[in-house]
Write a protein that binds this DNA or RNA. Structure first.
Lengths: 180, 180
DNA sequence: GGAAATCTACTCGGATACCGCGTGTCCGAGTTATGGTGG
DNA sequence: CCACCATAACTCGGACACGCGGTATCCGAGTAGATTTCC
């Protein structure tokens, strides 16, 4: 199990499809988003409620509803997505062992427990560096880099797929709905 | 559960007692090291076998044995300890979702799966920053910083405690061993 | 033909099952110094 | 007095129990557009 969960991976991949024309669509249903990538639908739905609470996406309820980015893609950093889904769980949780030194007995002196544990400080520094690195990258940066590898026809393919999925679902009432 | 385990915390605290005169001793038994800090003995023993395999400490077997640093403290980085105990487990494990896009069908094209996933690349960069930060700090640095807070009499106290523990154990054969 | 009722698709939120992994414990094996014993 | 033996202390390594949290699934509630029905 990694520190950055697969939920973040799912979320990021989904959000990349929502970065607007050129690389995808601007709004889509969570179901379509999940089925597009072959990931569990219900799980992705839970992720998007977190993204919604964090203010990264806006959701329109009811039929024909869906989710969309709340801000332009270049104003959403990878760190935003990570903290929205995984929370800001620490890289390391200090158990304050420095105060348990046997020579202290039951009551450790003040100089031993005041301030931040030196080991903890090192870890916090490393965590800070990691966060800074994640904050430097925006969804737009990521989208550009992904799109650079794909042929020009791929973008329209994506859009077409979403449209076909939406209209197709609205048509088959009694035909394939029975066979299903 | 954090990415950097409590095992690393135990290990670092133990190693700090082994950074030589001034801040501690140069050699000690794993049992004493663990009891000094009130942490589980057997667990720490397992940690030191990892540290031994990684070449960070040397262990002399048999009675009167113990562990000691294999190199000077300034040549052992925090990253060395982390990787020795936790292994080099990745911050993020890519599930290669990019290849599962529904428009690809069963066989994703080469341009989609070649190279490193863009999202993965961002995470690797963040992980690299974190590692660099941990590599900058050595055991000696840490020891100096910890020692700066303690009063001057603390170092000798530590040494005395270890000596008393070792000689005391060798004496009580039948006296306190019965009462225990 | 238009308004109301129904139906469907969608987002939200909680409850729950599963499972891998970190934490902690226990025990046996191999090794070495120490203390006692017999020659 | 010296050689030998038993014992204790120590590291090493594997096996295993436990609990937590990430992953995944299911279901009910609420909402809004589309469809049907009824006057």
């Amino acid at each position: 199990m990694s520190h950055i969960s697969t939920g973040v991976e799912y979320g990021l991949h989904c959000l990349l499809y929502l970065t607007g024309p050129g690389q995808g669509v601007t709004e889509a249903s969570v179901r379509d988003l999940a089925e597009m990538q072959g990931v569990p639908v219900d799980y992705v739905a839970k992720l998007f409620t977190k993204l919604h609470k964090a203010g990264l996406v806006i959701a329109t309820e009811g039929a024909k509803g869906g989710v969309a980015l709340a801000r332009p893609a270049h104003q959403i950093s990878v760190l935003d997505v990570v903290t929205a889904i995984d929370g800001d769980k620490p890289l390391f949780d200090c158990r304050e062992i420095r105060g348990r030194c046997a020579v202290f007995g039951d009551s450790p002196p003040g100089w031993a427990t005041s301030g931040v544990c030196s080991i903890h400080a090192v870890m916090l520094q490393a965590e800070k560096r990691m966060r800074e690195s994640l904050a430097e990258q925006s969804l737009a940066d990521l989208s550009v880099r992904v799109n650079a590898k794909a042929p020009r026809a791929h973008g329209p393919h994506i859009v077409k797929w979403f449209e076909a999925k939406a209209t197709g679902r609205r048509r088959d009432r009694g035909s394939s709905a029975v066979s299903e």
